[in-house]
């Protein structure tokens, strides 16, 4: 085999590699984007059941309902509400009336089954519901 032929062969291999990569990128980026909505937007857009979405909003007051390790709560943007079901451990900063982002599958128009819950926290301000505990020095109860 001539050197020239081998060189062309390698160039062809590289081109194949590159095109495979580009196909993969295009295909996967199409199928793995998750759209980010507020509760009102989610209700407006009318998605298919089972689609993966991200919802951002505030955890509604008195809406958290924990049973065993299943947690249910409501995300609101002060206009519309979305129910969230979640199994697992909530982030440390998760609190009522705090900003939250959840990611999961739509199980009906107003409910998502979340597999991820993120609570956002800005270093510059204090989450207000924590302030009660700040008064005395003990945060955790001492009598478990």
């Amino acid at each position: 085999m001539s050197i020239r032929f081998q060189r062309i062969f390698i160039i062809i291999v590289s081109i194949i590699l590159i095109s495979i990569a580009i196909t993969l990128i295009l295909y996967n980026s199409r199928n793995n984007i998750i759209f980010f909505y507020t509760p009102s937007e989610l209700i407006d857009v009318d998605l298919n059941i089972g689609e993966k979405v991200r919802i951002g909003g505030i955890v509604k007051e008195n809406s958290i309902n924990k049973k065993k390790n299943i947690i249910k709560f409501i995300v609101t943007d002060n206009k519309n509400e979305i129910n969230v079901n979640f199994e697992g451990i909530l982030p440390d900063l998760f609190r009522e009336k705090q900003g939250v982002v959840t990611e999961g599958k739509l199980i009906n128009k107003f409910t998502i089954k979340a597999d991820k819950v993120f609570a956002k926290h800005d270093e510059n301000y204090i989450p207000k519901s924590i302030k009660k505990q700040l008064k005395n020095n003990d945060f955790w109860q001492k009598d478990y």
Partner: peptide
Amino acid sequence: DGSIGLEFGVFGLPE
């Protein structure tokens, strides 16, 4: 008492 903050959608203090 907290209700006005809720109406305004306050996330944390200050706002």
